[in-house]
Structures are given as structure tokens and as C-alpha cells.
């Protein structure tokens, strides 16, 4: 069992997403450590991409802020190495196909293993294109996380069958970003997964409030929160850490109750 799967044995997981290097790599390093202290079970770290087509404006702007500061994939790997000196929270990289492919997929996955990255989530690599990454992920023991969406329908079984780590369940149509309400469709998606394979399912896209966290935790194994946290970084810059620490404590409480 991978480090990722072990997390879900301890209870419902809280998985925050931040864009690495926003507003600076130093803050990212401290933020990851403090998010883990606040109870985050897995950290999703975004490698910024110039054209993040699966993201809404909040995360897109975070990517632009990081890139305009000169953040690169190498700086991020070095930062993760730094985090690993004091903190062993599982880290999953979320980025797009091109930053991985252009860096060299083999070199990328090798670096992931060296610095202790547990997995990758790549929204523009669907099931049909997984061979682009999978052989390299296997060689370097990096888990490739699969995504399912409300439009996946009969594809859910096919995807679930070969999924590893956990399944990222996209709660609603569209791009990332805070939503007022989440449809119940995702419950049905998760039951389809579980019929096919006993694998943890985490819900992402649109979640921000403790009420949503409690509601979604009931029907899943964990929740992923991105835009709400990235928005706090946008507002508070390098001073965001205490705000996010308190937010995660609050959210995590809802998952335990």
C-alpha cells in the first residue's frame, strides 16, 4: 500500500491545493509544513503553467503570479526537498501535461522519487493518454491519480478499474473555483467507483465552506480544497500562513465530527 492510500485508513482526508511559488517559494515551503501541522493529510502542490485550461480565474492568477516571480519546475523540486527535511506529509504534484513532457517525463518522475513526491495529478491526461506518463510513473514509484467527472458516466468503471492511490472526483462541470452548492451527482459517481474497486475517493472542485466539507465527507473518503485557499494567498500574500492554518483546522474538524 502506498503512502497515499495509508492516509485514508486514518479517516476522512483533508487535501489542500496551493500553487507552488505563490507568492514565493519560501512561503510555499512554510505553508506546506504549517498546513500539515493544521491537519492536512495530503498536500496538492501545483506546478504553475502558463495556460491552465482546467482552472478558473483564482488559480489561473496564482499560476501567473508564480511564473512572473520566475518560479520554475527545478525551484519547486528543490523546495520540496527542503520541506522533506522536517515534514513527511504526502505531497502530490498537480500540473499539466506540457510542463512534465517538456521537462522530460522520465527526468520529471525521477526527480519526484528523489525529493519524495508520492503522486501526480494531470488534468489534461485522460485515461486514453495515460501511457504518456504511466510507464515512467511505475519506474519511479510515483502514483498517477485518475480523475472522474459528472460527464464520465460509463467511463467510471473503466477508469476505476485501473486507478491507483485515490480517485479525484470532480464535483461539477466547468473549471476550478468556489461554488455555492454542489450537486448530489457525485454521490452516484462514487458508488459506481466502489462497485468496481475498493479505492478511496476524494471530492474536489467548488468546495470552500465547513458545511460543504461536512456534507461531502459523508459521501466520500476525503475532500480537496483549492480556490478558497489560493484566494487567501491572493489576499494576504506572505502573511497568509496563519489564516490558512486556522481555516484548515476548522475544515478538518468538520471531517472528524
Amino acid at each position: 500500500m502506498s503512502n497515499i492510500e495509508k492516509v485514508f485508513n486514518k479517516g476522512k482526508a483533508f487535501i489542500p491545493f496551493i500553487t507552488a511559488g505563490d507568492p514565493s517559494m519560501e512561503t510555499t515551503i512554510n505553508l506546506v509544513i504549517e498546513m500539515a501541522n493544521a491537519g492536512a493529510d495530503i498536500i496538492e502542490l501545483g506546478i504553475p503553467f502558463s495556460d491552465p485550461v482546467a482552472e478558473g480565474p483564482v488559480i489561473e492568477e496564482a499560476h501567473i503570479r508564480a511564473l512572473s516571480r520566475g518560479i520554475t519546475t527545478d525551484i519547486i523540486f528543490d523546495g520540496i526537498e527542503e520541506i522533506r527535511k522536517t515534514c513527511d506529509v504526502p505531497i502530490v504534484i498537480m500540473t499539466y501535461a506540457n510542463p512534465i513532457f517538456t521537462y522530460g517525463t522520465k527526468k520529471f518522475m525521477k526527480r519526484c522519487q528523489e525529493v519524495g513526491v508520492a503522486g501526480v495529478i494531470v488534468p489534461d491526461i485522460p485515461f486514453e493518454e495515460r501511457e504518456e506518463l504511466l510507464p515512467f510513473c511505475r519506474d519511479y514509484n510515483v502514483t498517477m491519480i485518475s480523475m472522474i467527472a459528472p460527464t464520465s458516466k460509463e467511463r467510471i468503471r473503466m477508469i476505476a478499474k485501473e486507478a491507483e492511490g485515490f480517485i479525484y472526483c470532480v464535483s461539477s462541470l466547468g473549471v476550478t473555483g468556489v461554488r455555492k452548492s454542489i450537486s448530489n451527482e457525485v454521490e452516484e459517481m462514487i458508488s459506481l467507483v466502489k462497485e468496481e474497486k475498493d479505492i478511496p475517493c476524494a471530492i474536489g472542485f467548488g468546495l470552500s465552506t465547513p458545511e460543504q466539507a461536512a456534507q461531502m465527507a459523508k459521501i466520500s473518503d476525503g475532500i480537496i480544497v483549492g480556490s478558497a485557499i489560493v484566494q487567501m494567498i491572493a489576499e494576504h500574500g506572505d502573511d497568509c500562513i496563519s489564516h490558512i492554518f486556522n481555516y484548515i483546522k476548522e475544515m478538518k474538524k468538520m471531517l472528524i465530527n
Partner: peptide
């Protein structure tokens, strides 16, 4: 070529 898009678009 290929189909490098989010899962949401695959069925379409």
C-alpha cells in the same frame, strides 16, 4: 495529435 483534455470533455 492525441486527446489531451480534461476528463469532463472526453465523452463529448
Amino acid at each position: 495529435g492525441g486527446q489531451f483534455v480534461p476528463e469532463t470533455l472526453m465523452n463529448a
